[in-house]
Amino acid sequence: MSNLSREDVAHVAMLARIQLEDAELDRLAAQLDQIVDWVGQVGEVASADVPPMSHPMPLANVTRPDEVRDSLTVEQALANAPQAQDDRFAVPRILDEE
């Protein structure tokens, strides 16, 4: 049984903002289906009473004082920008939302 269809992969790739080409989609879908089947074995072992562990170290309350530190200069901030204009990052037109 297939866990992950080609359509699923296309949808997830869209969520992940990766514009896959058709051939890539075919190849990745097949591999991912196999991998998803394999990782699904995590469902076999842990029961409901096992708490999830999101972090290896049991730390809490790590904070910093509200004190200003040096920022980058605007030149440094923009140095790696693919495109900049008027000290801002220039990006292609944004769809839909304001």
Partner: peptide, 19 residues
């Protein structure tokens, strides 16, 4: 630790974290 003042020149209150 970047400052938060309103109306600063663009991209002068940024650092590796908030960029």
């Amino acid at each position: 630790g970047c400052a938060t003042g309103f109306g600063a020149e663009p991209n002068t209150q940024t650092c590796p974290v908030c960029l």
